[in-house]
């Protein structure tokens, strides 16, 4: 009875009410920020007295924004590629491996996801200061890779677990070398997991703030660092413009991910 919406009586209005309020609560900041980015009030009056594209012009006029976005994109792409490759290898070991302590290894691989990022950030900051990686591209990639890898492993092991290894065996008996069987049969079959891993890894690196604050140097800044430093000075609507573009990117990636899922089920 409680698991049938139509039989809930008055309760269903309570449930629906809470859900609607929550949806509004979740949407409010996102809609607000998009509206704000087109508002012409420097003091963020809402609703704004008029509409303007001024903040977007300011955003694109300032080379520092574009530069940091470009840095972010480069780092995120490298992190994405490495995270998928390492995640694939590790997932094969975790799902198909025949060694003792697989469960322990899995838990170990996932710890960077559980530990507060601030600890990893401070630890890497100290370590990189010592070995001279602070403020470098490599340092950024290494730091982001550490936190992206667990998500990549979760996505890929999830897909790999549902894939029957007998199918790979069949490919081998058909005459494919074990590596060829993996490349031509297993990999396409778990591609949805690999794509999720790639999207997760890209977004994690692209949006990552805490590690980036510590890794950044005046010459090498990611977009979140740029937003962060600006935010600490004032709440200029330029940030709203930048944020709107970020929301747009998220929506695009979500649609891509949904299309991949749909293609998979078709």
């Amino acid at each position: 009875m409680l698991m049938n919406f139509d039989k809930l009586g008055t309760w269903r209005w309570v449930l629906a009410g809470i859900a609607v309020l929550m949806a509004l609560f979740l949407l409010l900041p996102i809609v607000f920020i998009v509206a704000l980015s087109f508002g012409d009030s420097r003091w963020l009056i809402f609703p704004p007295p008029g509409w303007t594209m001024r903040w977007y012009h300011e955003l694109f006029a300032d080379p520092r924004w574009l530069q940091s976005a470009w840095t972010s994109a480069r780092i995120a792409v490298v992190v994405m590629v490495l995270s998928v490759i390492l995640g694939l290898l590790a997932s094969f070991a975790l799902v198909r491996g025949q060694f003792r302590g697989r469960a322990v290894l899995r838990a170990f691989f996932l710890t960077p996801m559980i530990l507060p990022v601030v600890i990893i950030a401070v630890a890497l900051y100290a370590f990189f200061l010592r070995i001279g990686l602070n403020g470098t591209f490599t340092g950024f990639v290494a730091a982001h890779l550490i936190v992206a890898l667990p998500f990549s492993i979760i996505a890929i092991t999830g897909a790999l677990k549902t894939f029957d290894p007998a199918i790979e065996d069949a490919a081998i008996l058909c005459g494919a070398h074990p590596w060829e069987a993996r490349a031509r049969v297993t990999l396409p079959a778990i591609s949805h997991g690999v794509f999720s891993a790639a999207i997760f890894s890209f977004l994690i690196s692209w949006d990552e703030v805490v590690l980036a604050i510590f890794m950044a140097s005046p010459t090498l800044q990611t977009l979140p660092v740029r937003v962060w430093t600006t935010l600490r000075q004032d709440l200029t609507p330029v940030i709203a413009a930048a944020s709107t573009l970020l929301v747009l990117l998220t929506v695009v990636l979500m649609i891509v991910a949904a299309l991949i899922r749909k293609g998979k089920s078709r």
Partner: peptide, 28 residues
């Protein structure tokens, strides 16, 4: 269908985590 334990494939991730996670956190 392949001999060996498969542990070797976990090695790259393991090395990465040891170098850029375990060592820095321990030092800290």
């Amino acid at each position: 269908a392949r001999r060996g334990s498969g542990l070797g494939m976990a090695l790259p991730a393991l090395v990465l985590l040891l170098a850029f996670f375990v060592v820095p956190v321990t030092l800290l």
